[in-house]
Amino acid sequence: MKTTVKVWDPMVRIFHWSLVTCFAVAWLSADEWQDLHEVAGYTVMGLIAFRILWGLAGPRYARFRHFIHTPSRVVAYLKDICKGREARHIGHNPAGGMMVLALLLGLSLLTFTGWLYTTDQFWGEDWVEETHEFLANLLLMFAGLHLAGVILASVRHRESLVKAMLTGRKRAPSDRDIA
């Protein structure tokens, strides 16, 4: 019997940690090192484009169809969390899948407003800069919620999701888990 199973392929893991790094660099370099900030932002754009393609054509657990659920399913899962009876998912759970979508959408809007601010037409427009800053801070909050969810799931299911995102492997599913 296998003790672990492959879940996240190397491309998903490289994407994830690259995105974390680029977002942190962009957030920390804002208003200080514009060239670095822009390089990090454009790299995020490229990473998002890759992830969209990989979500359509990548392996099982990378595919959107595997972890994107209806809003009612996400709400039901969140209610189960509150009751302490949420199922363990081998890939992303419904709340995690929703967070992936929220982060990809938010980062897409963030990088779009960042790029927009560099154009002749919108350079110096307060509303573009304010929208960009609002989205950056909102995404920082989302990242905090994501980390809280990772910690909660790690504790509840007695496995390190951070380790799984480093190694690509998780504990093999039991008959009660959702593969």
Rank of each mutant, 00 (worst) to 15 (best):
F50K: 04
W115A: 13
P71K: 08
T21K: 00
D80A: 14
I151N: 03
V150Y: 02
L138Y: 06
H37D: 09
M99D: 03
S72W: 13
H69N: 07
A40E: 05
N137W: 13
W27N: 03
G114S: 07
T3P: 00
L56S: 08
W17S: 03
A179N: 15
A95Q: 00
D31M: 03
R85F: 05
D175Y: 15
R169I: 01
L135K: 05
K79E: 07
T131G: 11
A179I: 14
H157L: 05
T119R: 05
H37Y: 13
C82M: 13
Q34R: 10
V12K: 04
G106M: 10
F23A: 07
M141D: 08
R51H: 11
L110V: 10
V155I: 15
L147P: 07
L107W: 12
V128R: 06
A26W: 05
S108N: 05
E159I: 06
I14T: 12
V150G: 01
L110D: 02
V20Y: 06
A26R: 01
L105S: 15
G91K: 04
F142W: 10
T118R: 12
D35I: 11
L78S: 06
G91A: 08
V75A: 11
T111N: 14
P71G: 12
A87C: 03
G41M: 08
Y77V: 01
A57L: 13
A153T: 09
E86W: 00
T167K: 00
R158P: 02
F67N: 03
E32H: 09
F67H: 07
V25Y: 04
H146S: 03
I14D: 07
P173M: 07
D177Y: 14
I151G: 03
L135V: 14
R63M: 10
K170N: 11
F15V: 09
L104P: 04
E125V: 12
L101G: 09
L145A: 12
F15I: 09
I52V: 15
G41N: 06
G144E: 05
F134Q: 03
L135F: 09
T4H: 15
T113C: 07
L101Q: 05
G46E: 04
V150F: 02
D31R: 05
W115F: 15
Y42N: 10
L140Q: 03
L19C: 07
L107K: 04
I178Q: 11
V44L: 05
F23H: 03
L105M: 13
L166T: 10
Y117F: 08
L56Y: 13
E133W: 02
